[in-house]
């Protein structure tokens, strides 16, 4: 897993609530058996005017210029500013893969759907939760200022604006540790292999019908 400590970057807006993972990466791109290459199709139906297909070259597709992330001022954005319940719907990890492949390192929103939130941490993408009021402030500043950047610091759990405002955010200790150190979660769990085996033995004795039936 990729590590994350700090990031400073250009902010791009996604100004609507309940952005679902179908919107983040439409289903036709889920046919890939790879983890990479989803960036060009991030927000595909909003970004382009035609219907995208896997394997289709996106460089000559008609672009929807009214979609904010297509505007020059947001080119190269690496911090996505979003609204509440971001990432709802399907469990597809292709959503954080697409965000990360596009170049985003951080998402900031008032809330996230549970599965999406969890999936972000597996991919070195930091989902920051700020209050609705704080997100409103950031949207206002972003609209007013071209080249608007934010600094995000995971060890201190803060988002800092260039004018010096500091917003703190909460996250679970175990998620923070994994992200800071880029830990291999499977490797960590396998350190407890003896305990897992012990649990299994006890459970097989108590609930034998759970074991050995699928062959």
């Amino acid at each position: 897993m990729k590590a994350f400590t700090q990031h400073r970057g250009l902010v791009g807006p996604m100004d609507r609530a309940n952005v679902d993972t179908d919107m983040i990466i439409p289903k036709q791109f889920l046919k890939s058996i790879k983890r990479s290459g989803f960036g060009p199709n991030l927000f595909d139906e909003l970004r382009y005017l035609d219907e995208g297909q896997p394997g289709k070259d996106c460089s000559d597709r008609p672009v929807n210029h009214s979609f904010p992330l297509n505007q020059d001022r947001y080119k190269g954005a690496s911090v996505l500013l979003a609204r509440k319940n971001f990432g709802c719907g399907s469990s597809r990890e292709h959503a954080p893969w697409a965000l990360e492949d596009y170049g985003f390192h951080v998402v900031i929103a008032p809330s996230y759907a549970d599965i999406f939130y969890n999936n972000c941490f597996k991919n070195g993408l930091l989902p920051v939760i700020l209050s609705e009021q704080q997100v409103d402030i950031l949207f206002d500043e972003l609209a007013a200022q071209e080249g608007y950047q934010l600094s995000i610091d995971l060890p201190t759990q803060t988002v800092t604006t260039d004018s010096g405002q500091v917003f703190s955010f909460e996250l679970d200790k175990f998620r923070k540790e994994c992200l800071l150190n880029g830990l291999d979660e499977i490797g960590l769990t396998l350190q407890d292999a003896d305990q897992i085996k012990h649990y299994e033995t006890e459970r097989a004795a108590q609930h034998p019908w759970v074991f050995g039936v699928i062959k």
Binding site: M1, E93, I115, K122, T189, L190, A193
Partner: peptide
């Protein structure tokens, strides 16, 4: 669960 967790469950 997401795909990383699919791998995690397969392995552990």
């Amino acid at each position: 669960i997401g795909t990383s967790e699919v791998e995690h469950v397969l392995a552990t």
